[in-house]
């Protein structure tokens, strides 16, 4: 059970006094759980190969310039069944709902030969997790044709995505869409409506304006002001930290914990680092060591 800790903090003159409010958000969590169950049941039903072994590790996730690239490993195919793959995908999405929610995904299916209804199922699965499927890449002409019929992009190449605002521009310069999974440096200001998602660490050289969001699997370092929503450790890492020259976000999230900034405006911004301590998000002024 995920319990969100909503922390209303006040800044004392000698440090930080926090008044935690425990708000268990049972509802959305149980909904996700329920959906998982339902979907699994349907899949097993139509599948009926008895026991299906699912290996979510066979799904790799990378940050690309247009969002996330989800790659399904070839060797994970058990009996060549797309339903098995979907099951693995579902499990992966369900494990870290916060990381994927609101994101855009390109799916690399490799050599799999998929029909239009396979892809429709995939898209509705992603829809349920509030993830937009915008591209399907693969080597099979059948799959490509089916994807095109559904209006999906089949080439991640230099073509501009439909919503180019959600793009870390620096990645464009790489030519290749793949970035190292561990770190992403974005050298610009993230503006309202822009969203940056990356499974690894994220460094923003610039501001994160109100209305913008950064969701990272690892740490987030902002060399600038943070006014929007930042979510570190979104894949469940409670040890993730958020550092900024001026940390005044709309919301601060680490793993499954959520905190707001203190109401009172600090007159002079100081560099701060936020981390989870004893189950609470705590922000402390950065001290050179």
């Amino acid at each position: 059970m995920i319990v969100y800790h909503l922390i209303v903090g006040g800044v004392g003159s000698k440090g930080y006094a926090y008044f935690p409010l425990f708000v268990p958000l049972l509802f959305p969590v149980s909904i996700v759980g329920f959906r998982n169950l339902v979907t699994c049941a349907i899949m097993f039903g139509s599948n009926a190969p008895g026991r299906v072994r699912v290996n979510p590790e066979a799904i790799t996730i990378k940050g690309i310039r247009q969002g996330l690239l989800v790659t399904l490993a070839e060797e994970d195919r058990i009996g060549g069944n797309w339903h098995t793959d979907l099951l693995a995908l579902e499990e992966r999405l369900g494990a870290n709902p916060a990381f994927f929610r609101g994101g855009r995904v390109a799916l690399d299916v490799g050599t799999r030969e998929l029909s239009r209804s396979d892809l429709e199922q995939t898209r509705s699965l992603l829809d349920r997790h509030q993830v937009e499927l915008w591209a399907v890449v693969g080597t099979s002409p059948t799959t490509e044709a089916a994807a095109q019929e559904l209006g999906l992009v089949i080439d991640l190449g230099p073509a501009r995505p439909a919503a180019p605002e959600a793009v870390p521009e620096e990645a464009a310069g790489e030519g290749e869409e793949q970035l190292a999974a561990d770190g992403l440096v974005v050298r610009r200001t993230l503006r309202s409506g822009q969203s940056l998602r990356h499974p690894g660490h994220v460094v923003v050289v610039g501001d994160v304006n109100p209305g913008a969001e950064v969701v990272a699997g690892g740490d987030i370092v902002v060399w600038g002001r943070v006014r929007g929503v930042v979510h570190a450790g979104a894949l469940g890492d409670e040890k993730a930290v958020i550092c900024a020259l001026d940390l005044a976000p709309t919301q601060l999230r680490i793993a499954s914990r959520i905190a707001r900034s203190p109401e009172d405006k600090r007159r002079k911004p100081v560099p701060e680092m936020a981390s989870v301590q004893d189950g609470h998000i705590v922000a402390e002024p950065w001290q050179g060591r």
Binding site: R188, R191, S192, G193, N209, P210, G211, A212
Partner: peptide, 8 residues
Amino acid sequence: DRVVGLIE
């Protein structure tokens, strides 16, 4: 701010 982002 949103529009500036789109224009960029």
